[in-house]
Design a protein around this nucleic acid. Structure first.
Length: 734
DNA sequence: AGCACGCCGACT
DNA sequence: GTCGGCGTGCTC
């Protein structure tokens, strides 16, 4: 309340003040005065003055202490918008506490649709007034006949439906045959119809679908791990749980890794439910974003399929959460607020008291452990859909069958490619390395091209004529001479990237159609989609791709998959390296054999005895998971929790160092914490340095969270932005 | 996170 | 003599 109005009312009573969470890194809500006559409640979305600007915030729970009444400012406006539900507010608090980030920054993720807080404007429509105009034309007759069949119309809607021009409708409005009405805004997507395209499921699928449906109808928190090999119909099966939630009048959230948000998924959903789901991801048009946010809050949107940020949508009556490809590393957000969307989805489901389904062909080790310990229900789909058979997998020992000098494809694989192409089928060569070559060196002086900022090797991108750093994005022109000794034409590429494999295929099979797929190819997603469609239609013989070919695309003619350097990624020091490699190889070999024809997978490796290679070749996944667990146990890394990194970065380097000293003083002397300046921290994560194990003392069950809490209580966070990455399983804290 | 205030290099 | 780089501090 302003000074003037206080004098006007002459009141001695202090105004009512409420806590408001504003989207800044404050670790508690600020206090704002409630203007007389404004009815706010916890969850209300309000506009408040903050410094020089107006921001949207959320009225939070609890009482507020007004620290300095002179500073108290008034709420500017209460938005006409559904309040944030209690479960959602608890979720924000939970995520903030868990990630040790200020709640204000977490609530910001839930408010990322600025224009959505005001209601969408009503649309201008009209209805038939029962009066016919004096002059009737065929067009008018058609319009009037149609108009009477429905309660209301929009101008363009009627014109389109009647096959007449909008001018005819205008004329009828003018003559009073139609009277205007305000219509609710268009729905973002049509309502899904759960009876629309029921899939025909086999006996195994029906039994799994029944379990999922039962869990959904039960409408209480519970996690189900749905494990099904590629092509086993996982999606169709969990769609039955989606249908059950919709029939029960609840909303559904389907999380997908960003890359899997493809037209293919949308199409499958459309086929089952007669309408597409609402999409939610980072590069959506702002208008659509706002519409979906608003309609999710109002309950008008029933299903959202989205990337990890969809987790923060304000659903009104959430009934089911699905995390597809739950093992996918894209669920980890590693900037600003660090969180793992799969884990936070479990948390949200728990707070909303709804079931959650984690689906994958290759579950993460931690989910498998949760399942085996009985915290998750474990459902499996063992058989592949219809005639689709699993490919026949074998290892190619590169020591026994080495490629020719300066080449990277083994004679064994070359022969297989030749035979495949001769049969009119397709071969897929997978190599998870973009560019032409990961290292360029000078044969004259031994100089290695490296990034000035990161000291990592520069990757040769020959198609673009550039050397580029995959860590910081730095690029430079590919030089002719050595920058160290100046010698011309003595630069040599070491090791393969996909471009180099493509070159090798063009040389070896000049009459075959070779296609290169890589995320950095010119033309963007549109061109990529065209290429994928062309391949599916048989427009290529040999396809060479990075890990993007492992995800979700259906290539019916693909009967051979070759992994060029399957060991790549096993030796990079990542504690999850084996797991990641296993998942990637499993997925990419699953691309073959979906046509019912006999298919093969050949995996080139220098270490055929490695457990990952053995597991892939034998198909014995159980053994792999058991080994991986034992391995983590041996290394002192429990199956989940306490594994991984904590990266702390303060606003300035000096502050970071002061803070580091305080933290180390509070921590046991295992040196498990590293404190970095703001510029270094993200880079360090990327480079895979600074991965520390935090030794929690005591029992296995003692959580990292408890440890961190103690730590942070002992050394309060400095001002500025402190980022903490925690990579543990939140199950232990629910 | 924004945004303003404030103190040292290359320019109309 | 100024424009502007981003380091530092604040927002109820």
């Amino acid at each position: 309340m302003s000074q003037a109005s206080q004098m006007l009312f002459g009141s001695e009573e202090p105004q009512r003040a409420v806590p408001v969470l504003v989207p800044v890194p404050a670790d508690r809500p600020y206090s704002y005065a409630v203007p007389v006559g404004m009815a706010v409640e916890p969850g209300s979305i309000v506009q408040v003055p903050l410094g020089p600007r107006q921001v949207a915030g959320v009225v939070w729970d609890g009482e507020t202490e007004v620290i300095n009444p002179a500073k108290l400012r008034e709420i500017t406006k209460l938005f006409d918008c559904p309040p944030l539900q209690p479960a959602m507010r608890r979720f924000v608090d939970w995520v903030a506490a868990y990630t040790l980030s200020p709640p204000g920054l977490v609530v910001r993720m839930a408010l990322r649709a600025p224009a959505a807080f005001d209601p969408e404007p009503m649309m201008e429509g009209f209805r038939f007034a029962g009066v016919s105009p004096e002059r009737i034309t065929p067009a008018r007759a058609r319009a009037l006949e149609l108009a009477a069949s429905m309660p209301h119309w929009t101008r363009s809607g009627l014109a389109h439906a009647a096959g007449i021009s909008a001018a005819v409708v205008d004329g009828l409005i003018k003559h009073g045959s139609f009277e205007p009405v305000a219509l609710p805004p268009h729905p973002a997507v049509p309502l899904p119809d759960t009876t629309y395209g029921r899939a025909e499921l086999n006996a195994e699928q029906i039994s799994v679908a029944d379990s999922l449906r039962a869990a959904t109808v039960n409408a209480d928190y519970g996690v189900t791990l749905l494990e099904g090999v590629t092509g086993s119909g996982k999606t169709e099966v969990y769609f039955e749980a989606v249908a059950a939630a919709l029939d029960a009048g609840r909303q559904v959230l389907i999380l997908l890794p960003e890359i899997a948000l493809t037209q293919a998924f949308i199409d499958r959903f459309h086929t089952r439910f007669g309408a597409p789901p609402a999409e939610w991801h980072s590069d959506m048009p702002p208008r659509m974003r706002e519409k979906i946010w608003r309609q999710a809050a109002e309950g008008r949107v029933r299903v959202v399929a989205g990337a990890r940020s969809a987790l923060f949508l304000p659903f009104r009556e959430l009934g089911l959460v699905i995390v597809d490809e739950e093992h996918d590393p894209a669920y980890k957000q590693e900037e600003r607020t660090f969180y793992h969307a799969r884990d936070m989805a479990v948390v949200r489901a728990s707070l909303e008291k709804v079931p959650v389904i984690l689906a994958s062909a290759t579950p993460s080790v931690e989910s498998r452990v949760n399942a085996s310990q009985g915290r998750y229900e474990h459902l499996r789909l063992q058989s592949r859909y219809e005639e689709a058979a699993l490919p026949d997998l074998s290892l190619v020992d590169l020591r026994r069958h080495p490629p020719a000098r300066g080449r990277f494809v083994s004679p064994v694989l070359l022969t297989a490619i030749e035979q495949t192409v001769a049969r009119g089928e397709q071969a897929l060569l997978f190599l998870n390395r973009r560019g032409y070559s990961p290292l360029t060196l000078c044969r004259a002086c031994g100089y290695r091209f490296h990034c000035q900022q990161c000291s990592t090797w520069l990757v040769d991108h020959r198609l673009r004529g550039q050397l580029s750093c995959h860590h910081c994005g730095h690029t430079e022109k590919r030089p002719e001479s050595c920058p160290e000794c100046g010698t011309m034409d003595h630069l040599v590429a070491c090791g393969p990237g996909v471009e180099r494999i493509a070159e090798e295929m063009l040389e070896r099979f000049p009459n075959s159609r070779t296609v290169l797929l890589s995320s950095d190819l010119p033309g963007g997603p549109k061109r990529m989609r065209r290429e994928l469609e062309a391949i599916a239609d048989g427009g290529a013989d040999i396809v060479i791709g990075t890990q993007l070919v492992a995800k979700g695309h259906h290539f019916p003619l693909m009967t051979l998959v070759g992994a060029i350097d399957a060991d790549l990624g096993l030796a990079n020091g990542d504690p999850r390296a084996a797991e990641r490699t296993f998942q990637l190889l499993h997925q990419v070999t699953g691309r073959a054999g979906r046509s019912g024809r006999a298919s093969r997978g050949l995996i080139q490796t220098w270490q055929p005895e490695h457990p990952v290679m053995q597991a892939i070749a034998s198909g014995d996944e159980e053994r792999f998971y058991e080994r991986e667990l034992a391995e983590r146990e041996r290394a002192g890394m429990p199956p989940f929790g306490r594994l991984s990194a904590i990266i702390v970065s303060a606003a300035t380097r000096r502050e970071a160092e002061d803070y580091g000293r305080a933290l180390r003083a509070a921590a046991p002397d295992d040196g498990g914490i590293d404190v970095l300046g703001p510029a270094e921290a993200p880079l360090a994560v990327l480079r895979g340095r600074h991965r520390f194990r935090l030794l929690c003392q005591g029992s296995r069950q003692e959580s990292m969270q408890v440890f961190l809490r103690r730590l942070f209580a002992a050394a309060p966070r400095p001002r500025g932005s402190v980022q903490v990455q925690i990579d543990v399983d939140p199950q232990s804290f629910l």
